[in-house]
Amino acid sequence: MSDDGGNGNGQRFINITEDIIPDKIDYVKLISKIWTYIREYTPDGPRPQFYPEVLKKLLQKSCEVLKQDEMVVKVTGPAVIFGPVYGEGDSMISLMSLAKKVPPEQTYVMLGCYLGRGFAQIECLVFLLAYKILHPEKVVLLKGHHEESISIEMLKVKEWLMARGIERDVDLEECMIEMKRACSMMSAAAVIDSKILCMPGGPGPTIREKGLQKLVGLKKGVQAIADKKLLMEASWSVLLLDDAQKDMHGMPFFTPQQATDFCKANNLKCIVRGRQMVDEGYLNKPREVVTLISAVAYLDNFRNHAAVLQVDNDKGKVIRYKMEEGEQLSLELVKPGMGRNAVS
């Protein structure tokens, strides 16, 4: 592979799967190594690499584990709900640290979009899949629109894999196939304590028409075209907040009033979702909807907070932070320090 990592003054590459046996993966060790890589990341630091056999085995195992979840997972609180992380590993581990407890001490519900254009483009997904394998009842991974097969192609994930030392065509194709299979087995939604619906997108028109129970009844695997539409809406639906958004170019959407009506019809207290960028890290509009983003300063084009929602019975607490102004030099300078070694 091309030697384009680092700044020429030290280690150029770090193989995250070094000393990891493909047929007997030490998931605790793998999680720790990814956490350390993210924590110590600097723009001119060493680039990550993976052995393809380890990655393929992890994806295959995670597919088996994810398949065991219902399409709509029933969760008993307390729980922490994460919005999209978009490959921003620093945001992910910082919010985990601020939440103070990690699985299995506390349930995490993740609202999709683990893949993204942050520096940990693939590492966030691998980290969370490893966590899911370790604690299947305490980690809920929902499928966001970035985990759709078409999005995996459009994001050019194959190029990200090549940059991580996976260069043989056969390995690239097999990794892509296994990644798509694993993501296809992610659930569409979760319900916490029968009252809080967690869904990456939201109740699009078909979901509103058919009702939540139609989604609950779907099985993992091959679906009919009508059922695929339900799943697509769960991942892609946009909350229409003002008239300027009306031309959605075919994108499924729902309005504040439709969200209110959906909650009433399905005996829900609220919907917690991701999908849209919100400056404060969360947006509670309408009263029955909370929109989260868990990627700070998204794409470096925004100065948004990153946030998670901690729920316990009828109480909710937003945990958030904002990156310091100015250029990012080191995670040690711009991220909160408390508890960051909790997983390592």
Rank of each mutant, 00 (worst) to 15 (best):
L333A: 08
L329K: 08
P205G: 05
I293T: 15
D242T: 08
A188T: 09
E324R: 09
I152T: 05
A307G: 06
K74N: 12
V85A: 05
P252H: 03
V157P: 05
Y114I: 06
Q276W: 01
V222P: 10
D69F: 01
L239I: 08
T42C: 05
I38W: 01
M186R: 12
E64D: 05
E153L: 14
G6C: 03
K264N: 09
F254S: 11
L55Y: 05
V311I: 12
G165P: 04
S2Q: 10
S62T: 10
E64W: 00
C198P: 00
I207M: 14
D44Q: 14
K132L: 09
V290A: 02
S97G: 15
V28Q: 14
Q68N: 15
L30N: 01
T206H: 08
I81A: 09
N341M: 07
S237V: 02
M251T: 15
S187T: 02
L98P: 07
K56D: 07
K143L: 09
L240A: 11
P203S: 12
S235K: 07
K24V: 01
K61S: 07
K156S: 09
E105S: 11
G10M: 08
M1A: 15
S184K: 14
L292R: 00
G112T: 15
R12C: 02
E53A: 09
G6M: 00
M71P: 00
E327G: 06
G6L: 00
M186I: 13
L299P: 03
H145Q: 14
I293P: 01
P286E: 09
N304L: 06
E288R: 01
H249T: 00
K214V: 01
Q121H: 11
D227L: 00
K210Y: 03
E148P: 03
K269L: 03
S194I: 01
C263V: 01
M71R: 01
Y41L: 13
L115C: 04
I81D: 04
P286S: 10
L239D: 06
P336D: 04
K138D: 14
E324W: 04
R47F: 15
G274A: 08
P336G: 05
L58K: 10
